[in-house]
Design a binder for these strands. Sequence first.
RNA 1: GCGCCGGUAGCUCAGCUGGAUAGAGCACGGGAUUUCUAAUCCCGCGGUCGGGGGUUCGAGUCCCCCCCGGCGCACCA
Length: 646
Amino acid sequence: MSHRRPQACLERSASVRTIAPLAGNGVEMLLERIAEMARTALAAAHGVSPAHVALDLPEDRSRGDLTINAFLLAKEVRIAPPKLAATLAAALNAQHPVDTATAISGYVNLKLQPQALLEALFTEVLTDPAAFGRGQTLAGRRLLVEFSAPNTNKPLHLGHMRNNFLGSSTAAVLDYAGAHVLRANLFNDRGIHICKSMLGWKRFMDGATPESTGQKSDHLVGDCYVRFEREFALEVAAYCDTNPEEFAAWKTQRKATAAVEEEATLQREWRGTFREEGFARIPLGAECTEMLRAWERNDSAVRTLWEMMNGWAYAGFERSYADLGISFDVVYRESDTWTLGRDLILAGLEQGVFERRADGAVDIDLSAEKLGRKVVLRSDGTSVYMTQDIGTTVLKASQNNVDGQLWVVGDEQKHHFAVLFAILRRMGYAWASDLHHLAYGMVYLPEGRMKSREGKVVDADDLLAETTALAAAEVRTRDSEQRLDDAEVQRRAAAVALASLRFMLLKVNPLASMVFDPKESVKFDGDTGARVLYAYARLRSMLDAGGSSATGDAALLNDPAEVNLALTLFAFPAAAARAAREYSPAVVANWLLELVRDLNRFYDRCDVLRSSDAALRAARLRLCAAAATGLERGTTLLGMPLLQRM
RNA sequence: GCGCCGGUAGCUCAGCUGGAUAGAGCACGGGAUUUCUAAUCCCGCGGUCGGGGGUUCGAGUCCCCCCCGGCGCACCA
């Protein structure tokens, strides 16, 4: 009967310093051996056995390969840290696989025998490269990840790119932690905003089609939307100019509650308010509202127009998704799901989950969850956004047999999702405790936020095309003998561009808002996806030219650059696990940057193919193979394409 | 008014359950190397971690107050 085995840990300062969850591989065996030695020593000297002996990668690796923080141990066992450190140093010093162990002010710095380190690495990475870093923490779980969810009235922009990359990468990360993951899209293909682009086309576009204009079809739809907004703004201005008495009335009310402001400021505020509240009083607004009603009663002319324009939007998205490396396992459309939820609410009303108010509306009191009250059916019996989301969530859970769901949606909807989850818990669904909103922050441009209503956005297709063009120029620069044909240049450029954009948007903590500078994104030096790809291409060409590395002897590798590379590779399983735990592909991205830094130093310090020593060359090639595996696994989690040659 | 999320080098970002002198990249200054693909490597410059209290052997990290920025608190989506 085995005792409850404490987990061996590999922790580090920068991107990774967490529990290594794997079992039965080379690295954990090495770490566990050291941890076990430590526990044995502590038991013998002090009669204590802490559950958790944390092994860190020290920030400054000149201190050692691994470090044990005795202050942490002291919290559990109540013995002075210097004393613990001294005990551990004495016990571990020169005990395989530890080379030296030194106690310094409450820390024990360990230098490992390089051979033991590298052998453990080779065992872990090269025995089953495709599984390097794969975890089991989510084994048996079936998760559905919803992301993208675009409106069909305009093309994808920079914000969608962050969403799409986060969604697809998080899905990959969760899958790698052992879950069965389904990727879902939900198209917002109906509603007043869709009618705006439809009306824009009908009234102002002279029957333009993608064929007649040669335009990408979703972009044409977007132009219709922008055109509508422009014409609508003109009508709003005209209305406001000819009805000054409405402004005067509004102003009187406004001034009762606010400090006196300048006339021009008030005028602007009023117009802003009016374009929402006075929507139906503007001719175009009224027409738009009528169009929505016609859509809802299945008016054939409106439905035909809707089918045509949605077809354009979908066709455009399909191409964009392909270019961005995005795909889905299940797809929902709001036009199919928008009536869902009502029956569930009515059933819940019977069971007392919801309440019927005096005015006929149905609501729920969530004050126990500090979320206030929420109306889930209007007094006229129609649905609100929440009603639909209750319906689609239940539908997704039952159709796909999932026990957890994740939504990749901007953080401005945090409250909405908190309420949604609370309602579903009240409704008693077993899976309601496993719902998570990955509330990512907004993407800003250096000059501020994007304005989609005015068409001032960074378009996804344009950005990818521009980045690809710059990458192509870079590829050509490096192909001085012009050995590459156009198709090959284009293929490489496409990969570099997509990798760069994915990396740029994924390396930032998802929860934080970020500034994205399109000009910076097309540079390829520094902390970029292109640099990651380049490091890989160099490795690949060395490995392809170097022949077999299977005989590489770990005992020959002891250069600090080699040892550092191995230590960083050690940390990958922990990085992958942390990324899943925190829903943060950024953890993987930052780990990749460390790996690439170590790799470039290794290239600089150590000759591989140039080495005259055949045995050393084989050993280094084996290390290169391990590093290549690390790059492959990490970039795959981020959805970055790799190039064998650059 | 209430709530949530941010504020770390000139800029963009790391910094995990509190732990050793707060780290990268860009920019700037210098150097290496004409390369196993330089989309590289090394050195330097640069920080009162928004401010002030507190807890602790130890605080960028935890607690309180304040300032600044963003977002919510719809019978909109």
